[in-house]
Amino acid sequence: MKILVCLTKAPDTTTKISFTENDSKLNEAGVQWIINPYDEWYSLVRALELKEAGIATDVHIISVGKADVEPIIRKALAIGGDEAIRIDADSNDSFFIASQIAEYAKANQYELVMTGKESIDYNNSSIGAMIAELLDRPFISHVLNFNIQNGETTSVREIEGGEETDTCPLPLVISCQKGLAEQRIPNMRGIMASRTKPLKVVPASNSEPLTEIISYEMPPQKSGVKMISPDNVDELVKLLHEEAKVI
């Protein structure tokens, strides 16, 4: 069984976000790029565990991006993917990205396609479900626990205020939520091996983006904190009722 793990780059979680060119572009100065945490810590690691358990034969990594995503692809290979594919295009439109990955997945027969539950930059949470539709496959989102037995998958997925356990045959697309696996740090052997693992660059196919970002803005600043004495909690209750009107 072959698994395709989808990765995207994202600004490190400690990044202070700011914008340039009239608030139309992310200010990338000083931004540290990482593998989107949901893609790396849960999706990729669970795929590797399935290979180690003898359930999967190959774990391939795919990312849509220009050459600047290669460092994160190499890192993923260091953690343990077998080979990687970079589709040479720069886009933040979910449909464009999903179309590129779906086309490659279709031509190369992956029984399982895995994504993170969302990227921490655009938070669209869309790529997995779109790939599933383009491949005409079932899709399970926000998977917390995932197993395969005799071609039948069992997923525990997160729902509002709880969990649901689903079974579904392969082929399948899933998106991975925190808790699915434990984070792994690449070791020296992995890092050395990643340098010679295949990283194939594939030209992007024609697909129209359906959305575009016109501009960005920062959330409104708080006007300043009103400090209340710890001996006067009644005052806080009164302010929450009369001023903030939230209780």
Binding site: S94, S126, A129, M130, S141, L210, T211
Partner: peptide, 23 residues
């Protein structure tokens, strides 16, 4: 924008080639 729509809205978007804004 909840767990059901995260599984469904992008599929509908891809099927209808209809642009999707999440969140």
């Amino acid at each position: 924008n909840n767990s059901t729509s995260k599984a469904v809205a992008p599929r509908v978007s891809a099927k209808l080639k209809a642009g999707l804004v999440v969140g």
